[in-house]
Design a protein around this nucleic acid. Structure first.
Lengths: 206, 206
DNA sequence: ATCGTTCTTGATAGATCGATCTAGCGATAG
DNA sequence: CTATCGCTAGATCGATCTATCAAGAACGAT
Protein backbone atom coordinates (compact mmCIF):
# COMPACT_ATOMS: atom_id res chain seq x y z
CA UNK A 1 0.00 0.00 0.00
CA UNK A 2 2.60 2.54 -1.05
CA UNK A 3 1.15 5.88 -2.02
CA UNK A 4 4.75 7.01 -2.41
CA UNK A 5 4.57 10.78 -2.42
CA UNK A 6 7.61 11.79 -0.43
CA UNK A 7 10.70 10.41 -2.12
CA UNK A 8 11.58 8.09 -4.97
CA UNK A 9 9.52 7.19 -7.98
CA UNK A 10 5.74 6.93 -7.87
CA UNK A 11 4.16 3.58 -7.13
CA UNK A 12 3.70 1.03 -9.87
CA UNK A 13 -0.03 1.64 -10.01
CA UNK A 14 0.54 5.37 -10.35
CA UNK A 15 3.05 4.87 -13.12
CA UNK A 16 0.64 2.61 -15.00
CA UNK A 17 -2.16 5.15 -14.61
CA UNK A 18 0.04 8.01 -15.81
CA UNK A 19 1.33 6.12 -18.81
CA UNK A 20 -2.17 4.97 -19.67
CA UNK A 21 -3.54 8.48 -19.37
CA UNK A 22 -0.88 9.91 -21.65
CA UNK A 23 -1.21 7.21 -24.29
CA UNK A 24 -5.01 7.09 -24.29
CA UNK A 25 -5.08 10.85 -24.66
CA UNK A 26 -2.70 10.84 -27.62
CA UNK A 27 -3.52 7.62 -29.45
CA UNK A 28 -6.92 6.64 -28.18
CA UNK A 29 -8.12 3.54 -26.39
CA UNK A 30 -8.06 0.85 -29.04
CA UNK A 31 -4.88 2.28 -30.49
CA UNK A 32 -2.97 1.76 -27.27
CA UNK A 33 -1.83 -1.69 -26.17
CA UNK A 34 -1.23 -2.81 -22.62
CA UNK A 35 2.29 -3.81 -23.64
CA UNK A 36 2.97 -0.25 -24.68
CA UNK A 37 1.58 1.08 -21.42
CA UNK A 38 3.72 -1.14 -19.20
CA UNK A 39 6.77 -0.37 -21.35
CA UNK A 40 6.20 3.37 -20.94
CA UNK A 41 5.47 2.93 -17.24
CA UNK A 42 8.48 0.64 -16.78
CA UNK A 43 6.23 -1.80 -14.97
CA UNK A 44 5.80 -5.56 -15.18
CA UNK A 45 2.99 -6.72 -17.39
CA UNK A 46 1.31 -8.77 -14.71
CA UNK A 47 0.95 -5.76 -12.44
CA UNK A 48 -1.75 -4.40 -14.69
CA UNK A 49 -3.98 -7.30 -13.75
CA UNK A 50 -2.93 -7.11 -10.15
CA UNK A 51 -4.09 -3.51 -9.76
CA UNK A 52 -6.85 -3.66 -12.36
CA UNK A 53 -8.47 -7.08 -12.20
CA UNK A 54 -11.01 -5.87 -14.73
CA UNK A 55 -8.23 -5.54 -17.27
CA UNK A 56 -7.89 -2.84 -19.86
CA UNK A 57 -11.48 -1.69 -19.45
CA UNK A 58 -11.08 -1.05 -15.73
CA UNK A 59 -7.79 0.74 -16.30
CA UNK A 60 -9.46 2.88 -18.95
CA UNK A 61 -12.36 3.76 -16.68
CA UNK A 62 -10.10 4.75 -13.78
CA UNK A 63 -7.87 6.78 -16.07
CA UNK A 64 -10.89 8.60 -17.50
CA UNK A 65 -12.25 9.53 -14.08
CA UNK A 66 -8.88 10.52 -12.63
CA UNK A 67 -7.64 12.65 -15.50
CA UNK A 68 -11.13 14.03 -15.99
CA UNK A 69 -11.13 15.27 -12.41
CA UNK A 70 -7.65 16.74 -12.82
CA UNK A 71 -8.68 18.63 -15.94
CA UNK A 72 -11.71 19.97 -14.13
CA UNK A 73 -9.44 21.39 -11.45
CA UNK A 74 -7.44 23.08 -14.20
CA UNK A 75 -10.58 24.90 -15.32
CA UNK A 76 -11.53 25.87 -11.80
CA UNK A 77 -8.04 27.21 -11.19
CA UNK A 78 -8.22 29.38 -14.29
CA UNK A 79 -11.58 30.80 -13.28
CA UNK A 80 -10.58 31.39 -9.67
CA UNK A 81 -7.32 33.02 -10.66
CA UNK A 82 -8.92 35.55 -13.00
CA UNK A 83 -10.46 38.89 -11.99
CA UNK A 84 -13.61 38.19 -14.03
CA UNK A 85 -15.14 35.22 -15.88
CA UNK A 86 -14.37 36.62 -19.34
CA UNK A 87 -10.69 36.80 -18.47
CA UNK A 88 -10.95 33.35 -16.92
CA UNK A 89 -12.32 31.89 -20.14
CA UNK A 90 -9.61 33.59 -22.17
CA UNK A 91 -6.90 32.34 -19.80
CA UNK A 92 -8.20 28.80 -19.96
CA UNK A 93 -8.25 28.67 -23.76
CA UNK A 94 -4.84 30.33 -23.91
CA UNK A 95 -3.41 27.75 -21.54
CA UNK A 96 -4.90 24.93 -23.59
CA UNK A 97 -3.30 26.40 -26.70
CA UNK A 98 0.07 26.64 -25.01
CA UNK A 99 -0.07 23.02 -23.90
CA UNK A 100 -1.05 21.97 -27.40
CA UNK A 101 1.90 23.72 -29.01
CA UNK A 102 4.36 22.60 -26.35
CA UNK A 103 3.42 18.96 -26.89
CA UNK A 104 3.50 19.26 -30.67
CA UNK A 105 -0.30 19.09 -30.88
CA UNK A 106 -0.54 15.87 -28.93
CA UNK A 107 -2.05 16.84 -25.56
CA UNK A 108 -5.52 18.28 -25.90
CA UNK A 109 -8.54 16.93 -24.02
CA UNK A 110 -7.55 13.95 -21.85
CA UNK A 111 -10.66 11.94 -22.66
CA UNK A 112 -12.12 13.14 -25.98
CA UNK A 113 -10.47 10.60 -28.27
CA UNK A 114 -11.45 7.74 -26.01
CA UNK A 115 -14.94 9.17 -25.58
CA UNK A 116 -15.64 9.13 -29.31
CA UNK A 117 -14.19 5.66 -29.72
CA UNK A 118 -16.25 4.04 -27.01
CA UNK A 119 -19.49 6.02 -27.32
CA UNK A 120 -21.15 3.29 -29.37
CA UNK A 121 -19.05 0.26 -28.49
CA UNK A 122 -18.35 0.07 -24.77
CA UNK A 123 -21.06 1.03 -22.34
CA UNK A 124 -19.01 1.07 -19.09
CA UNK A 125 -16.40 3.34 -20.62
CA UNK A 126 -19.04 5.52 -22.28
CA UNK A 127 -20.61 5.91 -18.87
CA UNK A 128 -17.29 6.97 -17.35
CA UNK A 129 -16.84 9.68 -19.99
CA UNK A 130 -20.41 10.83 -19.48
CA UNK A 131 -19.80 11.17 -15.75
CA UNK A 132 -16.75 13.31 -16.39
CA UNK A 133 -18.58 15.59 -18.81
CA UNK A 134 -21.51 15.91 -16.42
CA UNK A 135 -19.05 16.85 -13.68
CA UNK A 136 -17.49 19.53 -15.85
CA UNK A 137 -20.90 20.97 -16.66
CA UNK A 138 -21.80 21.13 -12.99
CA UNK A 139 -18.47 22.70 -12.19
CA UNK A 140 -18.69 25.34 -14.90
CA UNK A 141 -22.28 26.17 -14.11
CA UNK A 142 -21.34 26.80 -10.50
CA UNK A 143 -18.39 28.97 -11.47
CA UNK A 144 -20.46 31.16 -13.80
CA UNK A 145 -23.41 31.33 -11.44
CA UNK A 146 -21.08 32.73 -8.80
CA UNK A 147 -20.38 35.72 -11.07
CA UNK A 148 -24.02 36.71 -11.27
CA UNK A 149 -25.14 34.85 -14.37
CA UNK A 150 -28.48 33.08 -14.08
CA UNK A 151 -28.61 29.35 -13.52
CA UNK A 152 -29.96 28.49 -16.95
CA UNK A 153 -27.64 30.86 -18.78
CA UNK A 154 -24.65 29.62 -16.81
CA UNK A 155 -25.39 26.03 -17.76
CA UNK A 156 -25.78 26.87 -21.43
CA UNK A 157 -22.64 28.97 -21.39
CA UNK A 158 -20.73 26.06 -19.88
CA UNK A 159 -22.03 23.61 -22.47
CA UNK A 160 -21.19 26.06 -25.24
CA UNK A 161 -17.72 26.48 -23.77
CA UNK A 162 -17.07 22.75 -23.56
CA UNK A 163 -18.41 22.17 -27.06
CA UNK A 164 -16.27 24.95 -28.49
CA UNK A 165 -13.23 23.69 -26.62
CA UNK A 166 -13.59 20.05 -27.62
CA UNK A 167 -14.35 20.87 -31.22
CA UNK A 168 -11.50 23.33 -31.45
CA UNK A 169 -9.20 20.60 -30.16
CA UNK A 170 -10.30 18.35 -33.01
CA UNK A 171 -9.64 21.01 -35.64
CA UNK A 172 -6.45 22.30 -34.09
CA UNK A 173 -4.86 18.89 -33.77
CA UNK A 174 -5.77 17.91 -37.33
CA UNK A 175 -4.71 21.23 -38.83
CA UNK A 176 -1.73 21.66 -36.52
CA UNK A 177 -2.78 25.24 -35.93
CA UNK A 178 -3.97 27.10 -32.88
CA UNK A 179 -6.34 29.24 -34.94
CA UNK A 180 -9.47 27.18 -34.13
CA UNK A 181 -8.65 27.27 -30.44
CA UNK A 182 -8.19 31.04 -30.54
CA UNK A 183 -11.36 31.68 -32.51
CA UNK A 184 -13.39 29.36 -30.31
CA UNK A 185 -12.01 30.97 -27.17
CA UNK A 186 -12.93 34.45 -28.34
CA UNK A 187 -16.36 33.22 -29.33
CA UNK A 188 -17.04 31.89 -25.84
CA UNK A 189 -15.53 34.96 -24.21
CA UNK A 190 -17.85 37.16 -26.27
CA UNK A 191 -20.86 35.17 -25.20
CA UNK A 192 -19.82 35.29 -21.55
CA UNK A 193 -19.33 39.02 -21.84
CA UNK A 194 -22.80 39.47 -23.33
CA UNK A 195 -24.37 37.46 -20.52
CA UNK A 196 -22.62 39.56 -17.89
CA UNK A 197 -23.85 42.77 -19.51
CA UNK A 198 -27.50 41.67 -19.48
CA UNK A 199 -27.80 39.57 -16.33
CA UNK A 200 -31.51 38.83 -16.50
CA UNK A 201 -32.24 38.54 -20.22
CA UNK A 202 -34.68 35.70 -20.81
CA UNK A 203 -33.49 35.06 -24.39
CA UNK A 204 -30.14 36.03 -25.88
CA UNK A 205 -30.36 34.27 -29.22
CA UNK A 206 -32.20 36.82 -31.33
CA UNK B 1 -15.03 -1.19 -64.22
CA UNK B 2 -18.58 -1.39 -62.97
CA UNK B 3 -19.85 1.87 -61.53
CA UNK B 4 -23.14 0.05 -61.10
CA UNK B 5 -25.65 2.83 -60.61
CA UNK B 6 -28.68 1.63 -62.49
CA UNK B 7 -29.71 -1.74 -61.05
CA UNK B 8 -28.41 -4.31 -58.63
CA UNK B 9 -26.07 -3.83 -55.71
CA UNK B 10 -23.23 -1.33 -55.71
CA UNK B 11 -19.79 -2.42 -56.84
CA UNK B 12 -17.49 -4.24 -54.48
CA UNK B 13 -15.28 -1.20 -54.07
CA UNK B 14 -18.28 0.96 -53.24
CA UNK B 15 -19.52 -1.56 -50.69
CA UNK B 16 -16.11 -1.66 -49.03
CA UNK B 17 -15.96 2.13 -48.94
CA UNK B 18 -19.44 2.41 -47.45
CA UNK B 19 -18.83 -0.22 -44.83
CA UNK B 20 -15.50 1.34 -43.95
CA UNK B 21 -17.03 4.79 -43.70
CA UNK B 22 -19.78 3.61 -41.39
CA UNK B 23 -17.48 1.60 -39.13
CA UNK B 24 -14.72 4.20 -38.94
CA UNK B 25 -17.30 6.80 -38.05
CA UNK B 26 -18.81 4.75 -35.27
CA UNK B 27 -15.85 2.83 -33.85
CA UNK B 28 -12.82 4.72 -35.07
CA UNK B 29 -9.91 3.65 -37.19
CA UNK B 30 -7.89 1.38 -34.94
CA UNK B 31 -11.05 -0.05 -33.47
CA UNK B 32 -12.23 -1.34 -36.83
CA UNK B 33 -10.64 -4.39 -38.44
CA UNK B 34 -10.47 -5.11 -42.13
CA UNK B 35 -12.14 -8.44 -41.47
CA UNK B 36 -15.10 -6.62 -39.98
CA UNK B 37 -15.28 -4.27 -42.94
CA UNK B 38 -15.34 -7.04 -45.54
CA UNK B 39 -17.89 -8.94 -43.49
CA UNK B 40 -20.17 -5.89 -43.34
CA UNK B 41 -19.59 -5.19 -47.04
CA UNK B 42 -20.12 -8.84 -47.95
CA UNK B 43 -16.92 -8.71 -49.95
CA UNK B 44 -13.92 -11.03 -50.21
CA UNK B 45 -10.97 -10.12 -48.06
CA UNK B 46 -8.56 -10.04 -50.97
CA UNK B 47 -10.60 -7.38 -52.75
CA UNK B 48 -9.50 -4.82 -50.20
CA UNK B 49 -5.93 -5.12 -51.40
CA UNK B 50 -7.05 -5.23 -55.02
CA UNK B 51 -8.78 -1.86 -54.81
CA UNK B 52 -6.56 -0.39 -52.11
CA UNK B 53 -2.99 -1.59 -52.66
CA UNK B 54 -1.91 0.68 -49.85
CA UNK B 55 -3.95 -1.40 -47.44
CA UNK B 56 -5.93 -0.10 -44.51
CA UNK B 57 -4.25 3.28 -44.57
CA UNK B 58 -5.18 3.95 -48.19
CA UNK B 59 -8.74 2.80 -47.55
CA UNK B 60 -8.91 5.11 -44.57
CA UNK B 61 -7.63 8.07 -46.53
CA UNK B 62 -10.09 7.55 -49.38
CA UNK B 63 -12.96 7.10 -46.97
CA UNK B 64 -12.02 10.30 -45.15
CA UNK B 65 -11.91 12.36 -48.33
CA UNK B 66 -15.08 10.87 -49.81
CA UNK B 67 -17.29 11.12 -46.76
CA UNK B 68 -15.77 14.47 -45.89
CA UNK B 69 -16.84 15.81 -49.26
CA UNK B 70 -20.31 14.34 -48.85
CA UNK B 71 -20.74 15.97 -45.46
CA UNK B 72 -19.62 19.29 -46.91
CA UNK B 73 -22.40 19.03 -49.50
CA UNK B 74 -24.83 18.44 -46.66
CA UNK B 75 -23.83 21.77 -45.12
CA UNK B 76 -24.04 23.59 -48.44
CA UNK B 77 -27.48 22.14 -49.06
CA UNK B 78 -28.72 23.37 -45.68
CA UNK B 79 -27.38 26.86 -46.31
CA UNK B 80 -28.72 27.06 -49.87
CA UNK B 81 -32.13 25.76 -48.83
CA UNK B 82 -32.64 28.34 -46.11
CA UNK B 83 -33.96 31.89 -46.54
CA UNK B 84 -31.09 33.35 -44.47
CA UNK B 85 -27.83 32.10 -42.93
CA UNK B 86 -29.16 32.06 -39.38
CA UNK B 87 -31.95 29.73 -40.41
CA UNK B 88 -29.42 27.71 -42.41
CA UNK B 89 -27.25 27.22 -39.34
CA UNK B 90 -30.25 26.22 -37.25
CA UNK B 91 -31.42 23.77 -39.91
CA UNK B 92 -28.00 22.19 -40.15
CA UNK B 93 -27.66 21.62 -36.42
CA UNK B 94 -31.24 20.37 -36.22
CA UNK B 95 -30.56 17.88 -39.00
CA UNK B 96 -27.41 16.68 -37.27
CA UNK B 97 -29.40 16.16 -34.08
CA UNK B 98 -32.06 14.19 -35.91
CA UNK B 99 -29.47 11.90 -37.49
CA UNK B 100 -27.84 11.40 -34.11
CA UNK B 101 -31.07 10.33 -32.45
CA UNK B 102 -32.18 8.17 -35.36
CA UNK B 103 -28.91 6.22 -35.26
CA UNK B 104 -28.97 5.88 -31.48
CA UNK B 105 -26.15 8.41 -31.08
CA UNK B 106 -23.83 6.59 -33.44
CA UNK B 107 -23.63 8.77 -36.55
CA UNK B 108 -22.16 12.16 -35.83
CA UNK B 109 -19.18 13.60 -37.70
CA UNK B 110 -17.91 11.12 -40.30
CA UNK B 111 -14.24 11.79 -39.60
CA UNK B 112 -13.85 13.22 -36.09
CA UNK B 113 -13.12 9.98 -34.25
CA UNK B 114 -10.52 8.97 -36.80
CA UNK B 115 -9.09 12.49 -36.85
CA UNK B 116 -8.35 12.45 -33.13
CA UNK B 117 -6.93 8.95 -33.28
CA UNK B 118 -4.46 9.63 -36.06
CA UNK B 119 -3.54 13.25 -35.31
CA UNK B 120 -0.33 12.26 -33.55
CA UNK B 121 0.25 8.77 -34.93
CA UNK B 122 -0.31 8.64 -38.69
CA UNK B 123 0.79 11.54 -40.80
CA UNK B 124 -0.86 10.56 -44.13
CA UNK B 125 -4.22 10.10 -42.46
CA UNK B 126 -3.81 13.25 -40.38
CA UNK B 127 -3.18 15.10 -43.62
CA UNK B 128 -6.35 13.70 -45.16
CA UNK B 129 -8.43 14.91 -42.23
CA UNK B 130 -6.72 18.32 -42.37
CA UNK B 131 -7.62 18.61 -46.05
CA UNK B 132 -11.25 17.87 -45.29
CA UNK B 133 -11.42 20.42 -42.49
CA UNK B 134 -9.71 23.02 -44.66
CA UNK B 135 -12.26 22.33 -47.38
CA UNK B 136 -15.12 22.80 -44.95
CA UNK B 137 -13.67 26.09 -43.76
CA UNK B 138 -13.36 27.34 -47.34
CA UNK B 139 -16.88 26.19 -48.11
CA UNK B 140 -18.42 27.82 -45.06
CA UNK B 141 -16.50 31.04 -45.52
CA UNK B 142 -17.81 31.30 -49.07
CA UNK B 143 -21.38 30.61 -47.97
CA UNK B 144 -21.32 33.29 -45.26
CA UNK B 145 -19.48 35.81 -47.42
CA UNK B 146 -22.26 35.50 -49.96
CA UNK B 147 -24.73 36.79 -47.37
CA UNK B 148 -22.83 40.03 -46.84
CA UNK B 149 -20.57 39.08 -43.96
CA UNK B 150 -16.97 40.24 -44.29
CA UNK B 151 -14.30 37.78 -45.34
CA UNK B 152 -12.53 37.68 -41.99
CA UNK B 153 -15.74 37.47 -39.98
CA UNK B 154 -17.09 34.76 -42.27
CA UNK B 155 -14.00 32.64 -41.77
CA UNK B 156 -14.10 33.02 -38.00
CA UNK B 157 -17.81 32.28 -37.93
CA UNK B 158 -17.19 29.10 -39.91
CA UNK B 159 -14.40 27.96 -37.61
CA UNK B 160 -16.57 28.72 -34.59
CA UNK B 161 -19.40 26.76 -36.18
CA UNK B 162 -17.25 23.73 -36.92
CA UNK B 163 -15.71 23.81 -33.46
CA UNK B 164 -19.09 24.04 -31.78
CA UNK B 165 -20.46 21.27 -33.97
CA UNK B 166 -17.59 18.85 -33.45
CA UNK B 167 -17.43 19.49 -29.73
CA UNK B 168 -21.18 19.17 -29.33
CA UNK B 169 -20.95 15.81 -31.10
CA UNK B 170 -18.43 14.63 -28.53
CA UNK B 171 -20.62 15.68 -25.61
CA UNK B 172 -23.89 14.53 -27.15
CA UNK B 173 -22.63 11.07 -28.02
CA UNK B 174 -21.09 10.56 -24.57
CA UNK B 175 -24.10 11.94 -22.70
CA UNK B 176 -26.64 10.43 -25.09
CA UNK B 177 -28.44 13.75 -25.14
CA UNK B 178 -29.07 16.32 -27.84
CA UNK B 179 -28.78 19.18 -25.39
CA UNK B 180 -25.17 20.07 -26.29
CA UNK B 181 -26.02 20.05 -29.97
CA UNK B 182 -28.99 22.33 -29.40
CA UNK B 183 -27.08 24.75 -27.18
CA UNK B 184 -24.12 24.85 -29.57
CA UNK B 185 -26.41 25.43 -32.53
CA UNK B 186 -28.15 28.34 -30.84
CA UNK B 187 -24.80 29.77 -29.85
CA UNK B 188 -23.57 29.78 -33.44
CA UNK B 189 -26.89 31.08 -34.72
CA UNK B 190 -26.68 33.97 -32.27
CA UNK B 191 -23.21 34.87 -33.44
CA UNK B 192 -24.24 34.70 -37.09
CA UNK B 193 -27.20 36.91 -36.30
CA UNK B 194 -24.96 39.46 -34.60
CA UNK B 195 -22.61 39.55 -37.56
CA UNK B 196 -25.49 40.13 -39.97
CA UNK B 197 -26.77 43.01 -37.88
CA UNK B 198 -23.43 44.83 -37.87
CA UNK B 199 -21.93 44.00 -41.24
CA UNK B 200 -18.75 46.08 -41.03
CA UNK B 201 -17.80 45.88 -37.36
CA UNK B 202 -14.02 45.50 -36.98
CA UNK B 203 -14.27 43.77 -33.61
CA UNK B 204 -17.26 41.85 -32.25
CA UNK B 205 -15.72 40.41 -29.12
CA UNK B 206 -16.12 43.23 -26.64
C1' DA C 1 12.40 -16.70 12.77
C1' DT C 2 8.50 -18.14 10.35
C1' DC C 3 4.28 -17.30 8.32
C1' DG C 4 1.13 -14.57 5.35
C1' DT C 5 0.20 -10.99 2.39
C1' DT C 6 1.25 -7.96 -1.16
C1' DC C 7 3.48 -7.09 -5.11
C1' DT C 8 6.58 -8.29 -8.90
C1' DT C 9 7.85 -10.87 -12.97
C1' DG C 10 7.69 -12.82 -17.36
C1' DA C 11 6.29 -16.97 -19.88
C1' DT C 12 2.50 -18.43 -22.25
C1' DA C 13 -2.19 -19.16 -24.21
C1' DG C 14 -5.62 -18.17 -27.52
C1' DA C 15 -7.52 -14.96 -30.48
C1' DT C 16 -7.18 -11.46 -33.89
C1' DC C 17 -4.62 -8.10 -36.48
C1' DG C 18 -2.92 -6.36 -41.23
C1' DA C 19 -0.82 -8.13 -45.13
C1' DT C 20 0.59 -11.50 -48.75
C1' DC C 21 -0.01 -15.07 -51.86
C1' DT C 22 -1.79 -18.38 -55.15
C1' DA C 23 -5.61 -20.20 -57.53
C1' DG C 24 -9.70 -19.78 -60.00
C1' DC C 25 -13.94 -17.48 -61.95
C1' DG C 26 -16.19 -14.91 -65.69
C1' DA C 27 -16.67 -11.68 -69.26
C1' DT C 28 -14.73 -9.97 -73.43
C1' DA C 29 -11.72 -9.63 -77.52
C1' DG C 30 -9.36 -11.86 -81.26
C1' DC D 1 -12.07 -21.76 -79.02
C1' DT D 2 -8.74 -19.66 -76.42
C1' DA D 3 -6.10 -16.04 -74.42
C1' DT D 4 -6.38 -12.12 -71.50
C1' DC D 5 -7.56 -9.36 -67.73
C1' DG D 6 -10.27 -7.67 -63.87
C1' DC D 7 -11.89 -9.40 -59.94
C1' DT D 8 -13.16 -12.96 -56.52
C1' DA D 9 -11.86 -16.02 -52.96
C1' DG D 10 -9.82 -17.55 -48.83
C1' DA D 11 -5.77 -19.96 -46.86
C1' DT D 12 -1.93 -18.53 -44.49
C1' DC D 13 1.93 -15.75 -42.34
C1' DG D 14 4.18 -13.29 -38.68
C1' DA D 15 3.13 -9.93 -35.41
C1' DT D 16 0.49 -8.26 -31.78
C1' DC D 17 -3.40 -8.19 -28.79
C1' DT D 18 -5.67 -9.15 -24.06
C1' DA D 19 -5.69 -12.19 -20.46
C1' DT D 20 -4.07 -15.97 -17.38
C1' DC D 21 -0.94 -18.34 -14.64
C1' DA D 22 2.67 -19.94 -11.51
C1' DA D 23 6.44 -18.74 -9.06
C1' DG D 24 9.53 -15.70 -6.61
C1' DA D 25 10.78 -11.33 -3.98
C1' DA D 26 9.77 -7.96 -0.39
C1' DC D 27 7.84 -6.84 3.83
C1' DG D 28 5.19 -6.78 8.24
C1' DA D 29 3.28 -9.15 12.07
C1' DT D 30 3.41 -12.32 15.63
Amino acid sequence: MNAGPATGRPSTKERIMSAGAELFRRQGYTGTGLKQIVAEADAPFGSVYHFFPGGKEQLGAEVVRTSGAAYGRLFTAAMDGAPDPVTGVRDFFAGAGRTLVETDYADACPIATLALEVASTNEPLRHATADVFTGWITLGTAAFTKTGIGEREARELTIALLSALEGAFVLSRALRSTEPLEVAGESVAARASALLASPAAPDTTA
